[in-house]
Write a protein that binds this DNA or RNA. Structure first.
Lengths: 219, 219
DNA sequence: TAGATTGTTAATCGATTAACAATC
DNA sequence: TAGATTGTTAATCGATTAACAATC
């Protein structure tokens, strides 16, 4: 029942919250009113105690023997994540990845709405994709101001990332979701979150390499 | 100098290794022969002690007062990650994201080569993208066998993920790079690595939400 | 030599897991 | 009531950071 927004909540917990959201949405769809930590743990493949710890962090209490209220819990997590109201965003870099993200409809449920794309290439400018306009990057500041956009999704080539991030900051962007492989340096107060393809691939391929090293033979 | 492949190396370390690779490649390009942990730390924005710990984990020694040998270190990390020889992969799901990944040329340097795509939609089958054929998913087993492909990059809609992952496992796929929002259950021995868009977005948007909650006013 | 850097050993920190009393 | 589940407090585990002797 408590709503206290805790000062600090661990990053691992925050990264797990979307999984709870997915589970809880399923439960709501099935008109399930309450769900217990062992149930959630079973569905996600981890331990009940971890579920309870995570849920405690967002400040919703359960009821012994019954579990947690599905709708209330869902709302609390979405509120915590800021997924309860929509934030507008621009995609900068209308390459394959940028276009793919602009067309992804899963963001709608996560409080993210992509309004438009930006690119430097005149051949792309003016040709809408997924019903969204592609503007010249020159117009980033003007349009960010006019539309009050504070989030940029950065999908330019690695070499251009630092420069374009600078433009974004100048344009008043407050948060950059960085899909490039480049580490960005930004003024204090600007949020950068890296979507790290290479890190994920490293985990996959190192495991594969380890397995290969272990299991010789077996033609 | 030592090459000992340590039994267990922490996941956080593995996820940082690609950053070292990027830095080291730059250094090599600049014909720099040695690089010190403070130098690397400066470039990546973390502490020298962490760099030394990470590098120790892959088993290359530095020289006091001089630093680490750039080329040797680079090779050691790439060998550890399995990025030193190419693994073939299929993209399953020729939607926007799948096509974007198939066209991404950054994988070449990371030991990953996408040979072809698969989709269920007859309209997509037979129309190559980025010079790569799109096959009917029915042919996954046959082609995986014939070409010896062991990695699948899963970019189908969430609802189809579980079923298609099952097909992939049946086809002899050993490692799945999962770009869907669905948690996959696979037989023991099959590697699944999740590329978690939602987790990353959660970190970004929760920080934004926290900032918004803190800094009222300031029109 | 003097001094910067490595690598080891210890201390700190945070996250996960365990144990269990409180609750309905 | 009996028993399942919560939430708290403690224990464990692993990762990061600090301190410092060894090295060239």
């Amino acid at each position: 029942m408590a709503t206290g927004r805790r000062i600090s909540i661990g990053l691992p917990t925050i990264r797990r919250l979307p999984m709870y959201v997915a589970i809880l949405e399923q439960a709501r769809q099935a008109s399930q009113e309450r769900i217990s930590s062992p149930q959630i743990a079973e569905l996600l493949g981890f331990e009940a105690i971890q579920v309870r710890k995570d849920l405690a962090a967002v400040g919703v209490s359960g009821q012994p023997r019954v579990g947690f209220p599905v709708v209330e819990l869902l709302q609390a997590i979405e509120r915590f994540l800021g997924w309860d109201n929509v934030s507008d965003a621009f995609v900068i870099g209308a390459g394959h990845l940028g276009v793919a993200l602009a067309g992804y409809d899963g963001f709608a449920g996560h409080g993210l709405k992509i309004l438009a794309l930006f690119d430097r290439d005149p051949a792309k400018v003016g040709t809408p994709v997924h019903g969204k306009e592609i503007f010249d990057i020159e117009r980033l500041g003007e349009l960010a101001q006019r539309l009050g956009v504070r989030i940029a999704i950065l999908t330019v080539p690695d070499e251009a990332a630092a420069e374009v991030a600078g433009l974004a900051v100048q344009a008043g962007i407050e948060a950059i979701w960085n899909f490039t492989g480049t580490k960005l340096t930004v003024p204090e107060g600007v949020i950068v979150e890296r979507m790290d393809l290479a890190a994920s691939l490293a985990v996959l391929s190192s495991r594969l390499a380890a397995e290969r090293a272990r299991g010789r033979g077996r033609a």
